[in-house]
Amino acid sequence: MDDRIEKLKEINILISSAISKSNKFWFEHVLPSQMSLPLFEKAEAQLNAILKDYPTDTNFWRMLCNVKTYTMDYAEAITALEKVIVLENKQKDKTQLLELMEHKDVPKPKAKVKITKSDSLQRALPYFKYHPEPTVTGAFETGTVVTCDCCKKPTDIYYTNPFFAVDEIEALCPWCIADGKAARKFEGSFQDDINVDDINDPEKLKELVERTPGYNGWQQEYWLAHCNDYCAFKGYVGWQEIEPLLDQFADIESDLAKAGGLKLTDLPNYLRDNGSCQGYLFQCICCNKYRIYYDFD
Rank of each mutant, 00 (worst) to 15 (best):
W218P: 00
L246C: 08
I13E: 15
Y290D: 08
V84H: 00
P213Y: 07
S22M: 04
N200K: 09
Q34C: 05
I199T: 08
Q122R: 14
T144Q: 14
I78F: 05
C227K: 10
E41R: 13
K94A: 08
D3S: 06
C287P: 02
R291E: 07
K52F: 06
V106P: 00
Q34L: 03
K42G: 01
K181G: 01
R184T: 13
C176D: 11
L271V: 11
P202H: 05
A165D: 07
C284T: 09
P154N: 11
L256G: 10
C151P: 07
Y70N: 07
Y280I: 04
D251S: 12
K110F: 05
D119E: 13
K129S: 10
E41Q: 15
L246S: 10
F190Y: 15
K263L: 14
G180L: 07
K117S: 11
K206A: 14
K289T: 14
P107K: 15
Q278T: 03
Q122D: 10
Q91R: 06
H226S: 10
K24C: 04
D198T: 12
E203G: 00
P38Q: 08
P174N: 10
E41C: 06
G235E: 06
P107G: 02
C150Y: 03
S33F: 03
A43T: 01
F128Q: 01
P154A: 06
Y290E: 09
L100R: 00
E241W: 01
S22G: 09
D3E: 09
R211C: 15
E170V: 04
I169S: 07
F282P: 01
H131R: 06
S33H: 04
I19S: 02
E6A: 13
K114F: 12
A178V: 05
P55W: 07
S118N: 12
K21S: 14
D197Y: 03
P154F: 08
A75Y: 03
E41N: 14
V106E: 14
N195T: 04
K9A: 13
N269S: 10
N200F: 13
T142A: 13
E207S: 00
K92T: 11
L125K: 03
K185I: 11
V209H: 00
C150W: 03
L51S: 05
E168N: 12
D198R: 12
I169Y: 09
D229V: 02
E6S: 14
L51N: 04
